[in-house]
């Protein structure tokens, strides 16, 4: 029996940007309004099918966003196949932090695909981060971006699908060269 392919995806971003909520929406299809800080790491798993029918297990690493855990994160980033860099659309400073997370990731696992997610899209009144801001950051990090809402589920599936496709495109290109 063919072994199921497993890929590790890391969620990175400042505290309270909604990383845990995005994972819960993607894995369990639900949303909880209460804010619960994550310490350390929680690994969740979801099975997805690639366009060719190949079954893949995504292991999603929800990492603590508080600065006190930055050192702890280093070991957890080992072996990541891709990462979602999450900012809160209602807090400009959380976008600016993404560059630091990208650098941290690049120092441990260089060149892995990453995507920028501007979360809390549903909070339109309080929004501080524009599409232009996201685009500027995306160009700086040589990637693209989505605006998401863990609350309504908007764009959450698409974001994970897009990252998975990028991971396998990268993976395929490496295997093709062999």
């Amino acid at each position: 029996m063919a072994r199921i392919i497993q890929k590790k995806i890391c969620m990175l971003g400042d505290f309270a940007v909604g990383k845990t909520s995005l994972v819960r929406r993607f894995v369990e299809g639900r949303f909880d309004d209460r804010y619960l800080s994550t310490i350390g790491v929680k690994v969740s798993r979801r099975r997805v099918l690639l366009p060719g029918g190949q079954e893949v297990h995504l292991l999603i690493w929800d990492l603590a966003g508080s600065e006190e855990f930055v050192d702890v994160q280093q070991n957890y980033l080992l072996g990541a196949a891709g990462a979602l860099l999450v900012c809160d659309l209602t807090r400009q400073s959380t976008l600016e932090s993404l560059e630091r997370y990208a650098r941290q990731l690049d120092s441990i696992t260089p060149g892995v695909p990453l995507l920028i997610l501007g979360n809390k899209k549903d909070l339109t009144e309080a929004r501080q981060v524009s599409g232009g801001n996201l685009e500027t950051m995306a160009q700086r990090l040589r990637t693209t971006w989505f605006t998401t809402s863990a609350k309504t589920g908007e764009n959450v599936e698409q974001a994970f699908s897009d990252l998975t496709a990028r991971i396998f495109a990268e993976w395929g290109s490496h295997h093709g060269r062999r």
Partner: peptide, 18 residues
């Protein structure tokens, strides 16, 4: 040695074990 701290696991009772 290699150390991983604060690993979270959900328990059947809905609580988190670290």
């Amino acid at each position: 040695p290699f150390l991983l701290r604060h690993i979270n696991r959900d328990t059947p009772g809905g609580k988190t074990r670290y």
